[in-house]
Design a protein around this nucleic acid. Structure first.
Lengths: 98, 98
DNA sequence: GACACATTTGCACAAATATGCAAATATAAG
DNA sequence: CTTATATTTGCATATTTGTGCAAATGTGTC
């Protein structure tokens, strides 16, 4: 496994491994439609600018998808992508190479 | 989901979300028997004391199991625990609550 | 264009983190 | 007990990261 692959996976996990960001993810987990940033602010008690930055981090890590809707931007979980990544890691770790 | 549960999961992911620590995990992935710290030093080019600290972090996060063997300490992946945690998260994220 | 609202960015700062080195500790072997 | 080896800890430090506030930007509405 190349260093770059390891780094990519580490970055993906790091994006999820912070309290406020994971709270945002769980919050979006329960939403059927994309949500805008203002709405997502409710779930963590930090400044809107901080939420904006966390959302950006999650988009860059491939956890969220972003859409422009007029003056708002809406966010939704990339459910299949995140689940796939986590399951691949789980499989890799559980498999004891003989 | 309680704040404490979110924090625990975030801490677990954060432990995995660092290059050298994830390298250690992948390295142990390919080992059938527990390895000592000196041996594990090979896989990341940092001081032994740094490896020691990373291993401690991973043990505290429940990723690794530690055993004392004479003057060495050996480490092994808690494969089932890690896989279970990752799969639970994957399931939660993939499931769109109707 | 003027205004309102949503979001991002620049800046400053505190806290957390990763790191290396040297010293301390633990323990096996002689 | 002394020595050698494995690991941890204390300390200093550079870097990264999370945060808030104010200003800037983008965009719809009047």
């Amino acid at each position: 496994m190349s260093d770059i692959q390891v780094q990519d996976t580490a970055d993906f996990l790091k994006a999820l491994g912070e309290f406020n960001r994971l709270s945002l993810v769980y919050r979006l987990c329960d939403c059927q439609s994309p949500q805008n940033a203002m709405c997502l602010c409710d779930c963590c008690s930090v400044d809107a600018s901080v939420v904006s930055r966390h959302l950006k981090t999650l988009v860059q890590a491939g956890v969220l998808k972003q859409e422009k809707k007029g003056r708002e931007r809406t966010y939704s979980l990339d459910r299949s992508r995140v689940a796939k990544e986590l399951r691949e890691l789980a499989d890799r770790i559980e498999t004891n190479i003989e």
